[in-house]
Structure formats: structure tokens, C-alpha cells
């Protein structure tokens, strides 16, 4: 189907009757150039993510979308988000077999067999945007910080590249970008969420296994997600105030 100028102008007309938030988001998209989000008030939001383990099919769409949206190096050592495959022999939650070939970027070629008494599932991982981030705590200069809307961000132009934060993250979410020599990590697509869009990984997730949520917005579906599911965060013993909430997280996941 081809969109000609007439149709496009008609579409622009529709743009006027969209909801305010949606039209603002689309406005940024149509603007075409990288822009700040001047109308965005960080103090009115508190971002989190909800992940439903039972919905993840391990397609790797989120990994690919993340690398594209955020220009993450394609080598298999650099991931802002990745997907792990868990294989838990019956009852043995202490010794799961885990793999994440190329972070799940190319999907997961079959390696287990049906009916061996095991439990199998995928676990998408990303920065947990901890409210008490160990990585933020150790940064010597304030090059990584918790934003007023609850996102752990990096100031690439201020980072020393000392890598202390990489050591301090219990979840392995940080890496040094070999091109900038600064640290890099999931920004929760800060350039998107501040413009009313969802993150790239949530945008492309075909089953809705991962959903961005705003805990300060009482109408956000994440409240129902947290209320109606058995929810856990990764490594709760680390007391990091993680804000990526998993439904149906198995005890073997670490």
C-alpha cells in the first residue's frame, strides 16, 4: 500500500483528534530529529517494568529492538536487555541449566527434549532500575544516577570508565561501550518514555510479556499486574529496590 500526499494530509487531520498524550508522542516521531522532551515533568512519574514469565516465548525480538533503538554494539558481550533460557531438572532448583546464546538475539535453537521431567522457561533480563542502586552508590563522580522519575541513567560525557559500577551491579546489566569507553546500560528508553512512547523492547514484544508501567499513574495497568499476580524481583536478598517485577518467577532464577 502506498501512502500519497493526500492520504498523509488526511492522516494529519486525525492526528488532531487523538488523545493528548498520543498526539504528543506522535508529534515527536513525526518531528524527525532527536529532541528533548520539554513538556515532560519527571517528578510526576515513577517508572517500572512488569514481566510475565508465562508470556515470554523467547523470540528475541526485544533484544534485537533494543540493540537497534539504542545503537548497542552487536558483539555478544554487550546487552542492555537479554533473554535467558532456564532448564530446571525436576525439583533441583539449586542447579538450573541456563543459557543465553548471543543474549537471545537470534532466538533459541532447540536443545532440550520434551518429557524429561524438567521445567523450562525464558527469563527476559534488563536493568532493574533499582531505587537503591548499588551501581549509583559506587560511582565516584556522579556519572550514573537515579533520575527523579526512577530511572537509573548514565552521563556518558562525565563517566570516567572506572568500571566500579559494573562490578557493583548484582545483575550483570552494565558494560563498557567499546566505542565510547564509557559505561552503558538500559536507559529504559528514556528518550521514548519521556515522549509518551513505550520502550523499544515493550513496543515489539509480540505477547505482551514485558510492559512498561508508571507507578505514579493510578490508572496504569501495572497496578493490577502487581495486585493480581504472585510477584518477585530478582535477587531480593540484595535489597536494591529493584523495579522490574516478575510474575511467576521460579526460585531457580538468579
Amino acid at each position: 500500500m502506498t501512502v500519497n500526499r493526500r492520504q498523509f494530509v488526511l492522516a494529519s487531520g486525525k492526528y488532531l483528534v487523538m488523545s493528548a498524550a498520543a498526539s504528543r508522542a506522535v508529534g515527536y516521531v513525526l518531528a524527525g530529529s532527536p529532541e528533548r522532551a520539554p513538556g515532560y515533568s519527571a517528578h510526576d512519574h515513577w517508572w517500572a517494568m512488569a514481566i510475565d514469565i508465562d508470556l515470554c516465548i523467547g523470540c528475541g525480538g526485544c533484544v534485537r529492538a533494543c540493540k537497534e533503538e539504542n545503537d548497542v554494539p552487536l558483539e555478544p558481550f554487550f546487552f542492555r536487555t537479554w533473554v535467558e533460557r532456564y532448564h530446571v531438572p525436576e525439583g533441583d532448583i539449586e542447579h538450573p541449566m541456563v543459557d543465553s546464546p548471543n543474549g537471545g538475539y537470534d532466538g533459541f535453537p532447540e536443545r532440550y527434549r520434551e518429557g524429561d521431567g524438567s521445567k523450562n522457561f525464558f527469563v527476559p533480563k534488563l536493568c532493574n532500575h533499582c531505587a537503591h542502586s548499588p551501581c549509583v552508590q559506587v560511582c565516584p563522580v556522579g556519572a550514573t544516577f537515579e533520575s527523579p522519575d526512577g530511572v537509573v541513567l548514565v552521563d556518558k560525557d562525565y563517566c570516567l570508565g572506572c568500571r566500579y559500577c559494573v562490578q557493583a551491579c548484582p545483575y550483570g546489566c552494565r558494560f563498557i561501550d567499546p566505542r565510547t569507553h564509557s559505561v552503558d546500560k538500559c536507559s529504559l528508553c528514556y528518550h521514548r518514555i519521556t515522549k509518551g512512547l513505550t520502550t523499544a523492547c515493550c513496543e515489539v514484544c509480540p505477547t505482551g510479556a514485558r510492559t512498561l508501567g508508571d507507578l505514579k499513574d493510578p490508572s496504569d495497568p501495572i497496578h493490577e499486574f502487581l495486585r493480581t499476580n504472585m510477584v518477585q524481583v530478582l535477587k531480593p536478598q540484595m535489597a536494591t529496590g529493584a523495579k522490574v517485577y516478575y510474575a511467576d518467577l521460579d526460585g531457580s532464577v538468579r
Binding site: 532527536p34 515532560y40 548514565v154 528518550h191 515522549k195
Partner: peptide, 12 residues
Amino acid sequence: ALDDNSSVELRF
């Protein structure tokens, strides 16, 4: 740094 993070180019 907040502005730096929010002014990244959109791909999707």
C-alpha cells in the same frame, strides 16, 4: 544529563 538521555534519536 537528563536532557542528553531524552534527546536520543528515535528508531521505532
